[in-house]
Design a protein around this nucleic acid. Sequence first.
DNA 1: TTTTACATACAGTTTAAACTGTACAAACAA
DNA 2: TTGTTTGTACAGTTTAAACTGTATGTAAAA
Lengths: 164, 164
Amino acid sequence: MQPESYLTDDVINEFSKTLELFDLSPSDSRLFTILFLNHQPMTLDEMSQTTGKSKTSVNTGIRNLSDLNLVNQVWKKGVRKDLYTTTDDLFQRFMHYYLDKWLSHTSMQKQSLSSIEKKISDRPQGELIETKVKQMLIFHKHLEKAFIQLKTTCQEINDDDRIS
Amino acid sequence: MQPESYLTDDVINEFSKTLELFDLSPSDSRLFTILFLNHQPMTLDEMSQTTGKSKTSVNTGIRNLSDLNLVNQVWKKGVRKDLYTTTDDLFQRFMHYYLDKWLSHTSMQKQSLSSIEKKISDRPQGELIETKVKQMLIFHKHLEKAFIQLKTTCQEINDDDRIS
DNA sequence: TTTTACATACAGTTTAAACTGTACAAACAA
DNA sequence: TTGTTTGTACAGTTTAAACTGTATGTAAAA
């Protein structure tokens, strides 16, 4: 890959900032963006060269992104090196990962707090803490509701997109 | 403040984990939770004691939370020390802060990318990069749409809450 | 089989963030 | 005014994360 033009570099920097909102590290965001901008799948060595990071570093970065299901490994006959690529459905992928994160977390926390609530009411020590835990539970219920709705919204956006 | 019971400590740990989803640091999340659980406004010294962190550390933590509009400073006559407290409208506060963050960011990035797009089309070098930037713009438009809808949802949740 | 090319595990290093203690400044009390 | 009490700026330290280079293992090529 040829050295980046300063304009391409701007694109990388700007887009990476957005990806960081999804709780990706700056490095991982940058790596993803570079991979996304590339017209074809890249090898670890190529990514190492383009990012200016060591191969090991790129390897763990790609592993992170793969675990979140944000990049894909592809095979090309004749090529021995591992090849990675992104897909064009940026929005769907990122939102799916993000919503999953929120929803699985809120679900777990609701359980944890319920269980704590029980223990507290068994040995009635403080009214105060009990009230607070109730508020926390409501907070989580609201969160869950909001993000379930967001999921629906994303589905709609995706559908609209497919039609046009 | 008396030493925390292990049960209270569980509550703090669990709830803090949720707050971290809002991009608060573990320390700030913990600080907020402690403040929220306390039945009355707390001073820096109290928070320092309860969190086990230095006063300076608590000070910067509170400053962070204040900047995000998640805690309030209150005055009590006769008390010289600064007093801080949280409010009961957890959901509204956090979502407001969070949505603002997303929406202001996406709005800015849309502008940045548009501006870059212009520069690219002026000096037509690569078709590829142009296409990619267009995709990024669509990505941001989708994000904006989704989070604006989320804002509406939160408003509704909040309204429902106020009635009951 | 041996040799080569690659991914990855691991130990050590660098870098950045969080935290602490001291020092200073502002507000209040006497 | 002077003496106290409090918040905060700052320099230095600790801690955790990111990164690197070497070493190892594995799969393909010869």
